[in-house]
Amino acid sequence: MAKVLNFGELLLRICPDVEGNWLKNNNLPFYVGGAELNVATALALWGIPSAYLTALPDNTLSAQLLDYIRGLNIDTTAVQHHGDRIGLYYLHQGKDMKNAGVIYDRANSSFATLPTGKIDWEEVFKEVSWFHFSAICPALSQMAANLCLEALQEASARGIYISIDLNYRAKLWKYGKEPLEVLPALVGYCDLVMGNLWAAEKMLGIPVPDYIAVQDKKELYLEQSLKSSTALMGLFPKCKVVANTFRFDYEQGVKYYSTLFTEGHLHVSKEYRSEKIVDKVGSGDCYMAGLIYGFYLRKSAQQSLDFATAAAFSKLFVESDATTVKSEDVQQKAAAYEIIESIH
């Protein structure tokens, strides 16, 4: 079976508690992650041939990390040894990556400084049928943005299916470029685009009326999803699938649903709600993995959407960057939180 190659920066997430007890206890929980590695981990767990391309320094810590990744059944043969440091970020336990409290320590990392012309793409793309990356990659540096473009050109030339997650991280865009100056050229190579309405607005210039969020009505979100998805495909003719997630955090908990637009039809998922969750990090990555899983196995658009949505929601109850919920358990675990009266 052909592999899914996931391309992005490996990160270590450091999790100090909000109260600061880590200082007294000399103890800091951490997790191995990074958006694309989270996708690769979920796919490997679900039995899809999964590979990972990143850059790491050539030292004993990297060797231990690669052993760990291989232990997850992820192919690491494409990993490049380059540079001197692994990216880090700090996030209080239970908080979200978009939270103002996230602290990045990724400048001049091995991945952010990997130049074009270094990777043997002929070798890397052997037996690869799907290439996935996220908008976090070109946010890191101009070198990373250049490398993304090189990777997409090489993948496209080989007829490899390409997907992108439009993750927007405002704190990462610090090298003088705005997302709108970089992302359209990359998305032009993509067959599947996943994100949300506001990421597409910020990164691709597809407008979202202010009243949508003010009125906060599901029917308006779904209507706008159809409009935004149609506009995206009009701007980027290679794109054949657009997915939008809707996760809303309230004092009384979280609600989650998503849409998938393809072949002129907007598919809508079930809606899930919960008063309590465990870890917000990585739910979007799990959703992306769910879409890849569905389309890789040639499931229908609705089946792929339903699995991805349930996978993302079930990830909210897993305390790590990547899911540990097996594919056969995904929809069963989410079913207890389904809202029957959701709009279809």
Rank of each mutant, 00 (worst) to 15 (best):
A55G: 03
Y90R: 13
P209M: 09
A311H: 00
A151D: 04
F30W: 15
R247N: 04
N108S: 12
I212F: 02
D216T: 01
S110P: 03
L291W: 02
Y256C: 04
P209G: 10
D17E: 10
L23W: 08
S269T: 07
S141K: 11
S229Y: 03
M143A: 11
L140F: 03
Q64S: 15
C190N: 05
F307S: 03
G176V: 06
K171A: 15
F30H: 14
L147K: 01
R106H: 09
G205P: 06
G176M: 10
F131G: 06
A243C: 07
Y68A: 09
L140V: 08
D96C: 05
I277R: 04
S62N: 09
Y175Q: 08
N27I: 05
A200K: 02
K3C: 09
D17N: 14
P184G: 12
W173V: 03
K95F: 13
A185F: 10
G87I: 09
L11S: 10
T245K: 09
E122M: 00
T77F: 11
F317G: 08
S50A: 14
W130C: 07
E19L: 12
Q215C: 02
V32R: 15
A112L: 07
H81E: 05
E319C: 13
A2F: 15
L192Q: 10
L235S: 14
T230A: 13
A55E: 01
G195V: 06
N59M: 10
E122F: 00
V4M: 06
R70M: 13
I103D: 04
V325S: 09
Y337P: 05
Q93V: 09
P29C: 07
C137A: 15
I206E: 07
Q303P: 00
L66V: 10
A40W: 13
G94I: 03
S109H: 01
A289L: 02
G94V: 08
T76D: 01
T113A: 02
V4C: 09
A40R: 14
D120I: 01
N26A: 12
N73H: 12
F7S: 01
F248K: 13
L23S: 09
L297R: 15
N244S: 10
V208L: 07
G117A: 00
G294H: 01
C190Q: 02
G8Q: 01
G33Y: 11
H265G: 02
A310Y: 11
V128M: 11
A40M: 11
C148M: 14
V79E: 04
K217D: 03
R169L: 15
V124M: 00
K238E: 08
L204N: 05
L226E: 12
K177Q: 15
I340L: 13
I86H: 01
K171Y: 07
L65N: 03
D329T: 09
T309S: 12
I162Y: 02
L260N: 04
T113Y: 06
G101H: 05
V102G: 11
Q93T: 13
A170W: 05
K171I: 04
F317E: 08
G20F: 08
V79F: 00
